[in-house]
């Protein structure tokens, strides 16, 4: 049996809102030690989502036997809209389930809402992601990165990320012209999440599809910082930390014709 209770329904709502525009169907793998993990790749096979909700994400978590819940995220999203952000949210599944029970509890009123979501058999291949040695790692406020991704998409289909030891530069070139934003590393002692950290082994210059970056920054609601790991001619990793665990996006770069 699975029973996972979130202190705030908003956490799962934000997670599903962050991934459902990229992937529609995905398997939620549940286990006592790892909590709930998801790996899903978008139809174009350009963007991969790796989600890890450790048991620490939950106020209470038990999973007696490993199980896989095949979920349609659009349907799950419809049910999650029914609860309030501050409600307790509990996911319940029997062993070998054909449905997932979703329970919202209002903390102040004696109101309990229950929904049952039909599960699906989802055939998906799993990709093995080896730990990569990255050329660069950037940690910055997620709101800043989100603004760049959204603003530059109006100018260009692509966003270039150029990292040197001294700075990270975001650059877009479009029909109307071009633009760039440069950040230099700095440490904000009063607000550590406002700091910008750049670790560089080798400079990189990579180009990514603006459309995918705009899907990725939907997760900015989950964490005030984002870590971007870049390697020449390889997929980039965009990571948002959860209270316990992470939401990661792997995005294949564009190449020169």
């Amino acid at each position: 049996m699975l029973e996972g209770k979130f202190d705030q329904a908003s956490l799962l709502k934000k997670i599903i809102d962050s991934i459902r525009d990229s992937v529609k169907l995905c398997n939620f793998n549940c286990s006592q030690n790892d909590g709930i993990t998801v790996q899903a790749i978008d139809d174009s096979r350009v963007l991969l989502i790796a989600l890890k909700m450790d048991p620490g994400c939950f106020q209470e978590f038990r999973c007696d036997r490993d199980m896989v819940l095949g979920l349609d995220l659009e349907s799950l999203g419809k049910i999650l809209k029914q609860g309030n952000n501050e409600d307790y949210l509990t996911l319940i599944a029997e062993d070998n389930p054909d449905s997932l029970l979703i329970v919202f509890e209002d903390k102040k009123k004696d109101r309990i809402s229950e929904f049952s979501l039909k599960l699906m058999d989802i055939d998906s291949d799993v990709l093995t992601i080896d730990d990569m040695d990255n050329d660069c790692s950037i940690t910055m406020p997620s709101a800043d990165f989100s603004k760049i991704a959204r603003d530059f998409k109006t100018m260009s289909e692509s966003l270039q990320i150029i990292v040197t030891k001294e700075s990270v530069k975001f650059k877009a070139e479009g029909q109307i012209g071009s633009g760039s934003v440069i950040f230099k590393p700095h440490t904000d002692l009063d607000n550590p999440d406002e700091s910008i950290k750049i670790d560089m082994n080798q400079p990189v210059n990579l180009t990514f599809g603006a459309k995918y970056l705009n899907d990725i920054v939907k997760a900015s609601t989950l964490s005030s910082t984002i870590t971007i790991k870049l390697t020449d001619k390889a997929p980039a990793l965009f990571e948002f930390k959860l209270p316990s665990g992470y939401l990661r996006y792997y995005l294949a770069p564009k190449f020169e014709d």
Partner: peptide, 14 residues
């Protein structure tokens, strides 16, 4: 501008 790469070339399917 440029050709969009795919993840399959980088990650192994298991």
């Amino acid at each position: 501008s440029g050709t969009q790469g795919r993840l399959d070339g980088f990650f192994k399917v298991s």
